[in-house]
């Protein structure tokens, strides 16, 4: 866990990535243009980054890769619910319910 002064340093640096990316062309004005090839490539960054964070958390339980674990099952429920219904609260409610049911109810 990062804490104390280093946490604040981290937060300030992170804020620079936000304002830096958001402001890139707005602050530059008419001086800059993004090459189309780079623009197309950059489109893949968010999906790749989100997945690189999510998939390990779903597949690794207790340090081991396993297809049978409560988080993966809860994750599949989240995907099904999010694809089926538009209610923004449901994936959180049902995903957490499945995870808690298996961890607390079944002691998995």
């Amino acid at each position: 866990m990062i804490d104390g002064v280093w946490l604040w340093v981290t937060l300030v640096l992170m804020s620079m990535t936000t304002v830096g990316t958001r402001g890139s062309f707005i602050l530059l004005g008419e001086k800059g243009r993004l090459p189309p090839a780079l623009q197309r490539t950059l489109r893949y960054a968010p999906a790749a980054a989100l997945s690189a964070l999510v998939v390990p958390d779903l597949l690794i339980d207790g340090g081991e890769v396993t297809l049978f674990n409560p988080k993966l099952l809860a994750g599949l429920v989240v995907i099904a619910v999010a694809l089926r219904w538009r209610n923004p609260w449901l994936p959180f409610l049902l995903g957490m319910a499945v995870l808690l049911l298996m961890r607390k109810g079944l002691g998995w």
């Binding site: 990535t17 936000t18 990316t21 958001r22 960054a45 968010p46 790749a48 980054a49």
Partner: peptide, 8 residues
């Protein structure tokens, strides 16, 4: 990486 879309 998560913010790159903002450049676009």
């Amino acid at each position: 990486a998560l913010n790159l879309r903002f450049i676009i």
